[in-house]
Write a protein that binds this DNA or RNA. Structure first.
Lengths: 202, 202
DNA sequence: GTATGACTAGACCGACCGGTCATCTCGTTC
DNA sequence: GAACGAGATGACCGGTCGGTCTAGTCATAC
C-alpha cells in the first residue's frame, strides 16, 4: 500500500492479503513472491518456512487489529455497550469494503486460519487461541464496566464476553458463506442480547 | 465403519472423515484411496474430480445430519426451547467423542469448508449456504412454535434463528481453536438468550 | 461363446509444491 | 581497497499433487 516498503514488510503484507482472501494452503510461496516482487531466495532469507510466515502474518495482523479498529471500537471513552456496536459496525464496513474491492467477503483471517490449520499445527492453534483470548478480554472489560455502571444487570462477564466473540465469529462465518456483508449488520447488533448468568455459587 | 461397503461409499466415508478431521486442501486423493482401499482408477470412475468429491461429501454429510441428530434434536415432540438445548448437547457429545478418538476437535465440517473454500468456489459456497439455510429453518420453526406457545415473547423469528445458527457455529469455532469441547457446553446454552426484535413495521 | 459394460488396477503425466544453494551485488568497516 | 556480510537472484531439487490412460477382470446378456 505504501511506497516501496522493506522487502520483509512487502512479503508480510502480500501474504496477509492472500491468506486472508483465499486460504493458507491455496496460496503458494511463488505467488506471494511474484506479487510482492521478491525473489524466492530473498523470501527464505527472511522466513525459514511457509509455516513461520503464517505465524508472522498472524502476529502482524493481531498487532494491526489491536492498535487499529479494535482499539478504536473499545475506546474507553465510549460507553461500554456502544463499543459492541462500534465493533460490529467496524467489521461490517471492513468486510463490505473488502467485498467491493475483490468481489468476495474474506471473513476473519483468524477464524479462517483457525478452522483450516488448527487441527494440524498445535503451535499455530495456540497462537490463534491467544489472539481470541485477547479479543475476548476487550469484551470482558466492556461488560465489566457496563455492569458497574448499572447499564446491564450483573452476569458472568467472562463467559458472556467469550460468547459474544463466538457470536461475532459465527456471524462473520455465515456472512462469508452468503458472501453478503449485510448479514453482519442485520445479525450483529444482537450481540448485546447474549447473556450468561453467574453460575450459582450459593 | 460397517463391513465392506460399496467402493463409492467407502471413498465417500473416508473422504468425509479426512476432510472433517483435517481440511480439504490437506487431504490428497492418494491418501483417500489408500485409506479407503481403492485404486486411483476406481476413484476417478466414481468421481470426476476432487471438487466433485467435496460436493458429494457435503451432500452426504448434510443428509446424515438432517436424518440424524438434527432430526432428533428438533423432534417436534420436544418443547421448542428444549430442542435448542438438545442440539447444543448433541454438538458437545459429538465433538467430545471425536476428540477422544483422534485427539483433536474437528469442528463443523460445513463451517470448516465454508471458511476454507467458499471464497474460491462459488458452487460449493452456494451448496454450503443451502445447508446452513436448512439448519436455520429448523431453528426458525422451533422459535415460531415457542412464540405461539407463549414460551417467549414475540420476536423476529427468522433473523433470530439465523443468529442462533451463527452463534452455534461461532461457539464451535472457538471450541476448536481451544481444542476443548467443554466450550460448547459452557457457552452453548446461552443460545437461548439471543433475541432479535421485529423490525418496527409501524 | 462372445460381446458388453461396470468396475479394478496401477503405471504414468506434467505441473507445481516448499525448500535449497551457489553466485552475485553492494554498502559498510577497517 | 580488501574483507565482510546482509540481502538479492534464479536455477535447481525431490516429492507430491490432481488427473489420465491403457490394460485387464468379471458378471451378465444374447
Amino acid at each position: 500500500m505504501s511506497i516501496a516498503p522493506d522487502t520483509k514488510e512487502r512479503i508480510l503484507a502480500t501474504a496477509r492479503d492472500l491468506f486472508h482472501g483465499r486460504s493458507y494452503a491455496d496460496v503458494g510461496i511463488k505467488e506471494i513472491c511474484t506479487l510482492a516482487k521478491v525473489q524466492k531466495g530473498s523470501f527464505y532469507h527472511f522466513f525459514p518456512s511457509k509455516r513461520d510466515l503464517a505465524m508472522a502474518v498472524i502476529d502482524s495482523m493481531a498487532d494491526d487489529w489491536a492498535h487499529g479498529f479494535v482499539a478504536e471500537a473499545f475506546d474507553e471513552a465510549l460507553p461500554p455497550l456502544e463499543r459492541l456496536d462500534y465493533m460490529v459496525d467496524a467489521v461490517y464496513f471492513w468486510q463490505k469494503a473488502a467485498k467491493n474491492l475483490e468481489g468476495r467477503m474474506p471473513g476473519c483471517l483468524f477464524g479462517n486460519l483457525a478452522l483450516e490449520i488448527s487441527t494440524r499445527d498445535e503451535v499455530i492453534r495456540a497462537r490463534l487461541n491467544a489472539v481470541f483470548n485477547k479479543a475476548s478480554a476487550r469484551f470482558h472489560q466492556a461488560l465489566e464496566e457496563a455492569v458497574e455502571n448499572g447499564e446491564i444487570p450483573p452476569l458472568d462477564t467472562e463467559a458472556t464476553a467469550t460468547a459474544m466473540l463466538a457470536y461475532l465469529e459465527g456471524v462473520i462465518l455465515l456472512a462469508k458463506t452468503r458472501n453478503d456483508p449485510d448479514v453482519v449488520r442485520s445479525l450483529g447488533p444482537a450481540i448485546k442480547s447474549i447473556r450468561i448468568e453467574h453460575r450459582q455459587t450459593n
